[in-house]
Write a protein that binds this DNA or RNA. Sequence first.
RNA 1: GGGGUCGUAGCUCAAUUGGUUAGAGCACCGGACUGUCGAUCCGGAGGUUGCGGGUUCGAGCCCCGUCGACCUCGCCA
Length: 593
Amino acid sequence: MHAYRTHNCGQLRSNHAGQSVKLSGWVFRKRDHGNLLFVDLRDHYGVTQVVVDRDSSAFALIEGLKLESVVAVDGQVLSRGSDKINPELPTGEIEVKASKVELLSEAAELPFPIFGNAEYPEDIRLRNRFLDLRREKLHENIVLRSQVIASLRRRMIDEGFTEFQTPILTASSPEGARDFLVPSRVHHGKFYALPQAPQMFKQLLMVAGFDRYFQIAPCFRDEDARADRSPGEFYQLDFEMSFVTQDDVFAAIEPVLHGVFDEFSKGRAVTPPPFPRITYKDSMLKYGSDKPDLRNPIEISDVTEIFRGGPFAVFAKSIENGAVVRAIPAPAAGTRARSFFDSANQWAKDEGFAGLAYINFKGGEGGGIAKNIGAERVAQLVSQMNLGPNDGVFFACDKPLNAAKLAGLVRTRVGTELDLIEKNTFKFCWIVDFPMYEWDEIDQRVIFSHNPFSMPQGEMEALETMNPLDILAYQYDIVCNGIELSSGAIRNHKPEIMYKAFEIAGYDRSVVDEKFKGMINAFKYGAPPHGGSAPGVDRIVMLLADEPNIREVILFPMNQKAEDLMMGAPSYVSEKQLRELRIAIVGDPHKSN
RNA sequence: GGGGUCGUAGCUCAAUUGGUUAGAGCACCGGACUGUCGAUCCGGAGGUUGCGGGUUCGAGCCCCGUCGACCUCGCCA
């Protein structure tokens, strides 16, 4: 007989009855009746009930076992009587009567129970991640993650993509996020950087003629965490294709994403390809966001003209100074208590906006600011927005970007409070036609709004003739349920257009030659037109696992302050290590500077 | 760096308006029990109420500071 097991803990059924077997696993749960006791033995595959009575030589050992100790059990498979079957358990028709129990590893008292799905403080969970990972939900999430990644790989390979590994130690680059730096021992004063994404490498693979690349790529960015953003590192399904238009990229990745979501949807609906395409401009107007949650049926309207020159002086005056008014309907909310509307106003102020005006209709009669603007303009609103007799409507008045942002937040808030968000569905869309540049208010200059390697629409002619802020890029995002899954672009593969694009953002030729040396040089030797994208793997798994926090789908995540509480990272290093790197720590490292 | 929420037993939570000895469940320890599957029953141990200061006759509760966790803004081409 095998040293540890003949079967796993999820395997035995009534047709095994009578067999002598050996199982190994963790003591999940004990039910001690004094002269008879039950142990639920658990491994990766399932749970099997082990029974032992006073007559057995194993009784004394098993009675004293602590939960989560690891044991090997020899015994005989018995059919349970019909009144003793546990329908909750796949192995519930049988039990193993133990004849011999061997303690393989004893467990100390646990910081939190493995059984059940109660919530525990995250720092304790992170410190004891190996225990947390034994718990059902997290264990399942991680298995799901593995299955999702396997499915993505299979689907990409089936579509003719080839997987490559790109370097982890590479060069720091300007633009983008803060880099993680790695000091060079050999080159005094020089540093490697961990890749924020394999962006330039994948473009070089296209120049190298590989045609279709993908990778489950680790990406490193030294930025602060969010619930949906793990600090430090995350994974992307990074891909790139040669000789393609934007539509070709969409057509390649849509079936992969639809397929993987459908495969693991557990009955939830998934937008069928082709996914809706919404321009950045329309999205900002109708949804107040560049990552709209299309499960929310509310659409925002621009009603600036209705308020222009009107009697509601606060708005009229702001409009003269360049503000716009965005209206967010709250269907059938007109009859709600006044506090529904007033609390929204207070909330908007707390969020840092000037405030929120509103009209609440009751039987067609408008309250709120209706009396301030007069019956004619109210009628125009009702007509333009197609409002019902008992609808509410909020108004955000501000400079266009701020008005859009506030309107978007109101849309989400109202949709959530009125329970309008469609359930059990994954709603995908593409956001297309992002602007190439934007205005940086702080530095008072033009900056790249997304990827500096994107091809501007209109190419060189657009760069030479248009106002930079009006130039669009072949730059697109995939959004699912309000979460940005992916950002991508058709790249700029022409050196002269690249120099010009960077010149507009304030980088002269020599900077491009120095900072993007590998790529700009490569483009001078025959580069195919190419483009791609990089859906976030962690976020895909989050959506499929229905987890609001990204740490629930990562094996060993860091906490919000980018510490690994289990391994103790980051940590101080020895003087010898620092000397080799010729690094001196300045200031008192025990104080934050 | 800014804002918000929270911090009571190993864990989840409770404790009337500021009022007697800070309670319960799970886990732990001891005892009883041969059909449980969140076993049950009896008993026990377990507390500097995050930390420091203040107000008060009296503080888990109020005030100030501080530390920590999470959420968020900045940041994330």
